[in-house]
Amino acid sequence: MVFDIYLLEAIINGLLLGGVLALLALGLNLIFGVIDVVWISYAELVMAGMYGVYWLYAFFGVPLVLAALIAIFGVAVLGFLVHYLVISPILGKPPINQLLATGGLLFFLQSFATLLFGVEFRNIGLRLPVIELWDMYFSFARILAFAAALIGMVSLYVFLKRTFMGTAIRAVAQDREIMATMGVNTRQVYLITSAIGGGLAGLAAGLLVLQYDVHPAVGLSFGPITFMICVLGGLGNLLGGFVAAFIMSQFISIGGFYLDLEWGYVIAFVFFIVMMFLRPQGILGRRG
């Protein structure tokens, strides 16, 4: 095949998209790995954060960076509350109940957003430049999102690796039962993990709002792909999720380049289903 500069553009755009997807998957994966719960409503937390940024920026004129920081904090609090109010009462129940309870939360957050903001698509109305490079065009918002997502992921890595609490969070994912003998309050670890997961969703929200319109159902457009990425990488496997995010984003981007954006997603999902049969433990996962 001849070299195609537009294909290269699509691949690089896929890479940039992969950064944000990896960030989304990281939050969900962290929560799954540590608490053993799938938050079906994770993308709705992102949606809440997007509304938060939109609202602060467009209505109150709060500077964008500050609005994003407030959103990170706000969604972190929301994540904390999700665990405190919804998950912890049913922690010992069958996993499917927990999944469904967060599904109820999905409905709740979606309709609550409708109640507050209506069903209109809203845009923060910020025009960011487009960068031209050898005939290829990249939106600055995407590059910014990619960079910020990477910074977010590296900070989380450092936290998990260096601090006592971060180490405890990883330890809980390996053997939750014995944590009390080391003086670790697993309940506290779960709450902190949920808040971190929320904070990551808040960061993703601040980045996505630069590129996409906000509407109550916006979570549904990237929620499913986030789950698939997590499962593809091996649920709870942070590195696997990272790799899977870039694989899936290439499917979407290249598929979208040759066909349609929807076909890109269809191919990505079909790839996911097939991989579930071939490697149910995930591309980097361990068996069992």
């Binding site: 006592f164 180490t167 990883r170 330890a171 390996q174 053997d175 014995i178 080391m182 003086g183 670790v184």
Partner: peptide
Amino acid sequence: LENRRLFPRMSVEENLKMGAF
């Protein structure tokens, strides 16, 4: 603990770190 119960996918030093939590 019975059967040691180390964190298998953490380094020796990280296991010791958990002891000092």
